[in-house]
Design a protein around this nucleic acid. Structure first.
Length: 902
RNA sequence: GGGCGCGUAGCUCAGCUGGUUAGAGCACCUCCCUUACAAGGAGGGGGUCGUAGGUUCGAAUCCUACCGCGCCCACCA
C-alpha cells in the first residue's frame, strides 16, 4: 500500500489527476441506450475572455452537477465552446491594428477578417485552457465555436426560415447607436445608467408674433433636427397655439406646433420639441403626424450638414455651442439640474445615440408565445423561483429585436440586393435571401447583386447554442466523393441531438436572462419544437468584499488563476461553493479561500492516518461487518455516514450546493476526524475497525468528488489501489441497515460526558497531558450501563486516570469542582497541590441556574397554556415536556452541587 | 414609475414548508508543537435576528408600514 506524502501539496497532484481523467475518456458523452442522458451546454465564454471569478463560479457549479450525475448513473455530456463575440472581438483586433496606426478601413474587410481569424487562432482558446485548470469535466472533443462552419450554417438556416415566415423584416427605425463602435445595438445591449444631467429651457419664437413657446430638453443639440413642437391637446395654456408655426432658433426652420397625447403637461413646460430622427418618442410622433425625419449626425456622432453651422462638431461639442449661441441670442431661459437614465454601449460604455436608420429586425411576439407558456406552466423552472417573474414580465412586453450590426466580424447577413429593382417602400423588393450569392436577380435577371454589408448580432447565433452545437440542421456538404461519410456523420449527430436534447439544466447569471436564456427558449420551440432545458439555475454575481461587481476595469478582481496557484483548484472550488447561497450574490476576498485549503489539508492528513493503519488487512477485499458485530464507535460512524448521505442527496436534488458542501465538511471534520478517528485509535488493531475506517473514507471520497475532484481522486487511488478515477464509480447508496438512532443517542451520551470532563479540566487549568480522577453519578441504570460499557472512550478521550461510578443517592460533594453532563453529575477529584475556589464555583453554578430557570419559566408558561396544548402538534408538545423535564433535572443537579459546596 | 434582493455574533454569511436553549467560518481569549494534521487540537467569550405594529398556542422565519443598503426593468422630453 502506497503512503501519502507527509505534507499535502496540491501542485503535485492536481494537474496530474485532471489529465488522468481525460486520458481515460471520462469526460466524453455518447449515446448509451442503457442509461438516461444528463446534458448541459456551457454558457460559451467570449473568445476574447479571460477567466474571472464569475466563470469560476459558473463552471464549478456545472462541473459539480455533471460529475455527480455521472456517478449517479446518467450518461452525461457537458458541451463546451466559445462565442465569437462580434463587437468585443472586433474591438480587440481594431485596437491591435491601431498600435500600427491602422484602421479597419485601411486594411479592408477581407484582410481585416484575416487579422481576426489570426487573432482567434492565437488567443481564442485561452479561456478554454483556463477552464481546464478549474478541472471542468467538459467533453473537449466536442468544443464548438459560434463561427464554426457547421454552426454558421445553422445561423443562416435560421435567418432564412424566419425571413420566409415573415418574422424577419427590414425597416427604418430609431435604434440604439453606439457612435464609438459605429453600429446599431439591441435594446438589451444599451443598458440605462442614471446620470446627473441638465434640463435646458429654450425659447422658440412664434411666427408673426412677439411671443415664445418654451420647450425643455436634456439634449439641446438635437433641436437642430426638430421638425415640430408638441403640446397636449387638452393643455389650456397652449390650446390656441396648436397649428401655429414656430421658428426653430439657430436653424430658422419653420416648424408646426402639434397636439399629441404623449405629451405630459406636468413635465417641464408642457411643450416638447420633436426630433423624429433622434428620439424614440419623437419618432412615434413623427410617424403619427407625418413629420420630416432630419438626421443631424454622422455615424461617429459628429454633426452633419443638416446641423448647419455646427456641421463637423462632435455631438457634445455641438451641445455646448448650441447652448452658448442660445444664451447669446437670449433664448435660453434656464438650466435645471436633472437626473435621468441614459443608455450606454454595453461593450465600450459610450453614451448611445437614438438614431434613425435602416436595420433588420426579428418580430418577437409570435416566438414569445410558446416560450412564455413553457415557463408559466412550469415546464421550464427557474432556480431561485423569483426570476420567473422577471422573465415573464419581459416576455409579456417583448419588443422586436434589432439584429443587424455594422461591423465585420460575425455572420454576414445572407441577403443580396438588386439595385435594379430595390424599392424604398417595400423592403422585400429586390431582396434575395440566400445561403450563397445568387448569379442573378430572381425578379429582373440583373447580375450585379450586392450582399448586405452587415453582420448579425452575436446573440443571433448564441440563441441556437443548445442544438446548433450538436450539428443542427445536419446538412453539411462534404468535399467531392466524401458525401457518404459526411451523411453518416450527420446521421449520428442527429441521433445525438435526439438523445441529449432537451438539455437538463442551464447554469448562468441573471444578467443574461433576456440576452440569452429567453431567446434560447424561443429558438428551442421555433426550430426544434421543444424546450432547450428543463431547469435554469441562476447563481449570483461575484462581487468584491465592498459589494462592487468584480471587473477588470475596476481593478478589484481576484484572479482565479492566482488563487489556484496559491491555494489549489479544489480549495478554490470548495471555498467558492461554500459561500454561494442559492442565487445570492457572492462577496469575495482572498482569505475566504483558506477555508477550502484548510479542508483539503484536513482530508489529506486524515487519509494519511487511515492509510497508515491498514497493515496486515486487505481492507478493500473485506466485507463491511454487520452493524450488530461492531463496537459503538464503528457502528456510530456508519450511522452518521448514511444519515449524512441522505441529507446530501436531498440538498443536491434541490441545487443547494452550499448546503451540500457544509454537510460534507461537518461530517468529515467534526464527526469523522474529531471523534471517530480519535476513538478508532483505541481499537486500531481491531480488524473490523480497519475495515470501517477504509469504507468510510472510501465512500467519503466519492461524496466529495464532485466538489473537489482532484484531491479525492488522488487519495482514492492510493487508498483503493484502483488506478481508474472516481468519476467512473457509482455514487454511494444509502444503507438503511446502518442507520440507528439508538446508537447515535448512546454515542452522544458518551461524547457529552467527555466534553463535560474536558470542560472541568480546562476550567481548572489542568494541562492536557495531566490525567485526572473523576467520580460519576449517573442519573439511572441505563446511563450507567452505557458509560460503563464505553469506559475506555471516556478514559482516553478526556484523559482520565481513575473513574469511579457512584450511586446518585450517595452524592455528597466536598470542595471539588463538578459539572453536570447528559445523565450525570461529574466530580473531579483535586490533587493535593491543586487549588479550588468554592466561592467562584458557586457563582458559576448560580449563573447557570439562572439561565436554565428562564427557559423553565418560558416552557412552564407554554405548557400551562391550554391553547398550546390543544393546538400544537402532539409531537411538539411531547418534545417540550421532555425538554422541560430535562431542564428540571439539570437544575436539580446544579442545586445539589451548590448546596454541597456550602 | 414599476419589480426584486439584503439588513442575524467584531467580520463574512447559513438558517428550506413557523416548533428544542438561533448556527458555521474567520477574528478574539485561555491552554497545548499529544507519533494524521499548528493550514492543527481542547475549552471559552460574544447575538433583545434593522425598527414598529399585526397574524398565531408559538415568529429570525408569515403579513403590513417604516428606516438603511444594493440590483434590475421602463420611450416622460
Amino acid at each position: 500500500m502506497e503512503e501519502l506524502a507527509k505534507k499535502y501539496n496540491f501542485k503535485d497532484i492536481e494537474e496530474k489527476q485532471y489529465l488522468h481523467c481525460e486520458k481515460n475518456d471520462l469526460f466524453h458523452g455518447k449515446i448509451n441506450s442503457t442509461k438516461k442522458p444528463f446534458s448541459i451546454v456551457i454558457p460559451p465564454p467570449n473568445v476574447t475572455g479571460i477567466l474571472h471569478m464569475g466563470h469560476a463560479l459558473n463552471n464549478t457549479v456545472q462541473d459539480i452537477l455533471i460529475r455527480y450525475k455521472k456517478m449517479a448513473g446518467f450518461e452525461t455530456l457537458w458541451m463546451p465552446g466559445t462565442d465569437h463575440a462580434g463587437i468585443a472581438t472586433q474591438n480587440v483586433v481594431e485596437r491591435k491594428l491601431a498600435k500600427e496606426k491602422l484602421t479597419r478601413d485601411d486594411v479592408g474587410r477581407e484582410k481585416f477578417l484575416e487579422h481576426v481569424w489570426d487573432w482567434k487562432q492565437e488567443y481564442g482558446s485561452t479561456i478554454i485552457k483556463q477552464l481546464r485548470s478549474l478541472a471542468c469535466a467538459c467533453d473537449w472533443q466536442r468544443t464548438r465555436f459560434t463561427m464554426d462552419e457547421g454552426y454558421s450554417d445553422a445561423v443562416l438556416e435560421v435567418f432564412i426560415r424566419l425571413y420566409d415566415k415573415g418574422l424577419i423584416y427590414r425597416g427604418n427605425r430609431i435604434i440604439n447607436w453606439c457612435p464609438r463602435c459605429q453600429t446599431a445595438l439591441s435594446d438589451e445591449e444599451a443598458p440605462h445608467q442614471d446620470m446627473d444631467g441638465h434640463l435646458y429651457h429654450i425659447k422658440y419664437p412664434i411666427k408673426d408674433s412677439a411671443e415664445f413657446l418654451v420647450v425643455a430638453t436634456t439634449r439641446p443639440e438635437t433641436m437642430l433636427g426638430d421638425t415640430a413642437v408638441a403640446v397636449h391637446p387638452n393643455d389650456k395654456r397652449y390650446k390656441d397655439l396648436i397649428g401655429k408655426i414656430v421658428i426653430l432658433p439657430l436653424i430658422q426652420r419653420e416648424i408646426k406646433i402639434i397636439a399629441d397625447d404623449f405629451v405630459d403637461p406636468a413635465f417641464g413646460t408642457g411643450a416638447v420639441k420633436v426630433t423624429p430622427a433622434h428620439d424614440p418618442n419623437d419618432y412615434g410622433m413623427g410617424k403619427r403626424h407625418n413629420l420630416e425625419f432630419i438626421n443631424i449626425l454622422h455615424p461617429d456622432g459628429v454633426c452633419n450638414a443638416n446641423a448647419g453651422k455646427y456641421n463637423g462638431l462632435d455631438r457634445f461639442a455641438a451641445r455646448k455651442a448650441v447652448i452658448e449661441d442660445l444664451k447669446q441670442q437670449g433664448l435660453l431661459v434656464k438650466i435645471d439640474s436633472h437626473a435621468h437614465a441614459v443608455g450606454h454601449c454595453y461593450r465600450c460604455d459610450t453614451v448611445i445615440e437614438p438614431y434613425y436608420s435602416k436595420q433588420w429586425f426579428v418580430s418577437m411576439k409570435p416566438l414569445a408565445i410558446p416560450a412564455t407558456e413553457a415557463v408559466r406552466t412550469g415546464e421550464i423552472k427557474f432556480h431561485p423561483e423569483r426570476w420567473t417573474k422577471v422573465y415573464l414580465n419581459w416576455m409579456d412586453n417583448i419588443q422586436d429585436w434589432c439584429i443587424s450590426r455594422q461591423i465585420w466580424w460575425g455572420h454576414r447577413i445572407p441577403v443580396y440586393y438588386c439595385a435594379a429593382c430595390q424599392d424604398e417602400d417595400d423592403y422585400k423588393k429586390g431582396v434575395i435571401v440566400s445561403r450563397i450569392k445568387p448569379d442573378k436577380c430572381r425578379h429582373c435577371g440583373a447580375t450585379d447583386l450586392v450582399q448586405d454589408p452587415d453582420v448579425l448580432d452575436t446573440w443571433f447565433s448564441s440563441w441556437l447554442w443548445p442544438f446548433a452545437t450538436f450539428g443542427w440542421p445536419f446538412n453539411q456538404k462534404a468535399e467531392d466523393g466524401k458525401q457518404k461519410i459526411e451523411d453518416e456523420k450527420q446521421k449520428i449527430a442527429k441521433q445525438e441531438l435526439d438523445y441529449f436534447y432537451p438539455t437538463d439544466v442551464l447554469v448562468t447569471a441573471p444578467e443574461i436572462i433576456f440576452f440569452w436564456v429567453a431567446r434560447m427558449i424561443m429558438a428551442g420551440f421555433e426550430f426544434i419544437g421543444d424546450i432547450p432545458f428543463k431547469d435554469v439555475y441562476l447563481h449570483g454575481t461575484v462581487r468584491d468584499d465592498t459589494g462592487k461587481k468584480m471587473s477588470k476595469s475596476l481593478g478589484n478582481s481576484i484572479d482565479p488563476l492566482e488563487i489556484i496557484a496559491e491555494y489549489g483548484t479544489d480549495a478554490l472550488r470548495f471555498s467558492l461553493i461554500s459561500i454561494t447561497s442559492m442565487g445570492q450574490d457572492v462577496y469575495l476576498s482572498k482569505e475566504k479561500f483558506e477555508f477550502g485549503r484548510n479542508f483539503c489539508n484536513k482530508i489529506w492528513n486524515a487519509s494519511r492516518f487511515i492509510l497508515m493503519n491498514f497493515d496486515g488487512v486487505d481492507v478493500s477485499k473485506e466485507k463491511l461487518p454487520l452493524k450488530n458485530d461492531l463496537n459503538l464507535a464503528d457502528a456510530w460512524i456508519l450511522s452518521r455516514f448514511n444519515l449524512t448521505l441522505k441529507k446530501l442527496n436531498q440538498s443536491l436534488s434541490k441545487y443547494r450546493l452550499n448546503e451540500a458542501v457544509n454537510i460534507i465538511y461537518e461530517f468529515f471534520w467534526h464527526q469523522l476526524c474529531d471523534w471517530y478517528i480519535e476513538l478508532s485509535k483505541l481499537n486500531i488493531e481491531n480488524k473490523d475497525t480497519k475495515i470501517v475506517l477504509y469504507n468510510v473514507l472510501e465512500m467519503s471520497l466519492r461524496l466529495m468528488h464532485p466538489f473537489m475532484p482532484l484531491i479525492s481522486d488522488e487519495i482514492w487511488q492510493k487508498v483503493t489501489g484502483n488506478d481508474t478515477a472516481i468519476m467512473s464509480q457509482p455514487w454511494p447508496e444509502i444503507n438503511e441497515d446502518y442507520i440507528d438512532l439508538d446508537i447515535e443517542k448512546e454515542m452522544q451520551l458518551v461524547m457529552d460526558n467527555c466534553v463535560s470532563i474536558r470542560n472541568l479540566r480546562s476550567e481548572n487549568n489542568i494541562k492536557p497531558k495531566d490525567k485526572v480522577d473523576i467520580e460519576l453519578y449517573p442519573e439511572d441504570k441505563s446511563v450507567l450501563n452505557i458509560l460503563e460499557k464505553n469506559l475506555n472512550y471516556l478514559l482516553n478521550m478526556s484523559k482520565v486516570e481513575n473513574l469511579h461510578f457512584a450511586d446518585k443517592s450517595s452524592f455528597k460533594v466536598s470542595v471539588n469542582p463538578s459539572s453536570t453532563a447528559a445523565g450525570c453529575v461529574i466530580v473531579m477529584k483535586l490533587k493535593l497541590d491543586e487549588t479550588f475556589d468554592p466561592e467562584k464555583e458557586t457563582q458559576k453554578i448560580e449563573a447557570q441556574i439562572k439561565e436554565l430557570n428562564q427557559h423553565i419559566i418560558r416552557k412552564d408558561k407554554l405548557l400551562s397554556n391550554e391553547n398550546y396544548v390543544k393546538k400544537a402538534p402532539v409531537a411538539i408538545v411531547e418534545k417540550e415536556k421532555q425538554s422541560l423535564l430535562e431542564l428540571k433535572q439539570e437544575i436539580d443537579k446544579l442545586e445539589k452541587i451548590k448546596s454541597a459546596l456550602k
